[in-house]
């Protein structure tokens, strides 16, 4: 039932620029791991490689010891949300989730269940192009939850959510981890990560500058924010 996400010495180049350098960390079951870093630090690139969307130039990213691309019915193992809803704008939310379910042999009743779970029960027949940013984030979460996966990989999940939504997702992710699931989320919002995460991976300029339980990473700093700027700032040397 436990599922580990492990990233080992990832290197990714775009043209001549190295955007990830030796990125290594783990996201353990039963814990919420926060990938924290400023915009452009390489958080999304790391998650895209983990999900098999982009190729690494070196290193490995594994789900339970195997590459994502080798998973059968991956939506039942890892639920993910990247930029936005991931839905075509002229399709309805229900149609989007239905083709997803069909592709992984997930019972179609799950579509209505996850729409209700994320608070979009009444908006299933609305085209995604008419959604608000917050509704799109909720649809992205519904898609991640569709296959009742053991691991959740979420890129900036609180982006666009109202305070009530943020509180709701915090409860959702906590519940998932407490039930033994693995949660890996990225964010550039320190306060959110501080309140949600058990473990922290701080990245800057494509490198991991600190990793470990949140208390260890922030030890010696008054707040996470102080730790963050000390670790990721121009004079940071990592630790």
């Amino acid at each position: 039932m436990v599922l580990m996400l492990s990233v080992e010495r990832l290197v990714k180049r775009r043209g001549s620029r190295e955007i990830l350098t030796d990125v290594t960390f783990r996201a353990a079951p039963g814990r919420v791991t926060g990938l924290l870093g400023p915009n452009g630090a390489g958080k999304s690139s790391t998650l895209r490689i983990l999900l098999g969307l982009d190729r690494a130039d070196a290193g490995t990213a594994l789900v339970d010891g195997q590459p994502y691309r080798r998973l059968r019915q991956p939506l039942r193992t890892v639920g993910s949300m990247l930029e936005g809803s991931g839905a075509h704008r002229s399709r309805t939310a229900r149609n989007h989730l239905t083709w997803m379910a069909r592709s992984n042999g997930i019972p179609i009743r799950r579509v209505a269940e996850v729409l209700d779970q994320v608070g979009l029960g009444a908006a299933g027949g609305t085209r995604v192009g008419r959604f608000s940013l917050g509704m799109c984030q909720r649809l992205g979460l519904a898609a991640a939850l569709l296959g009742e996966p053991r691991a959740l990989v979420l890129d900036e999940p609180v982006n666009g959510l109202d305070p009530e939504g943020i509180r709701w997702i915090r409860g959702l992710l906590r519940g998932h981890a407490d039930a033994g699931g693995t949660v890996l989320l990225s964010s550039h919002l320190m306060r959110e990560v501080d309140e949600i995460a058990d473990d922290l991976v701080v990245v800057a300029h494509g490198r991991v500058v600190a990793a470990g339980p949140i208390r260890e990473v922030t030890a010696g700093y008054p707040t996470l924010e102080d730790a963050f700027f000390a670790l990721t700032g121009p004079t940071a040397g990592g630790r």
Binding site: R48, L51, G52, L53, Y68, R69, R70, L71, P74, L75, V78, S80, L82, E83, G84, S85, G86, A87, H88, R89, H96, M100, S103, N104, V128, G129, F131, S132, L133, C136, Q137, G140, A143, N159, G160
Partner: peptide
């Protein structure tokens, strides 16, 4: 698959969903 959603609704393209569902 490659139609990009407007930034107003968070951007993104369906191709990421398609390839995470079916690698």
């Amino acid at each position: 698959e490659y139609t990009t959603n407007s930034a107003r609704i968070g951007g993104g393209r369906q191709i990421t969903t398609t390839l995470t569902a079916t690698p």
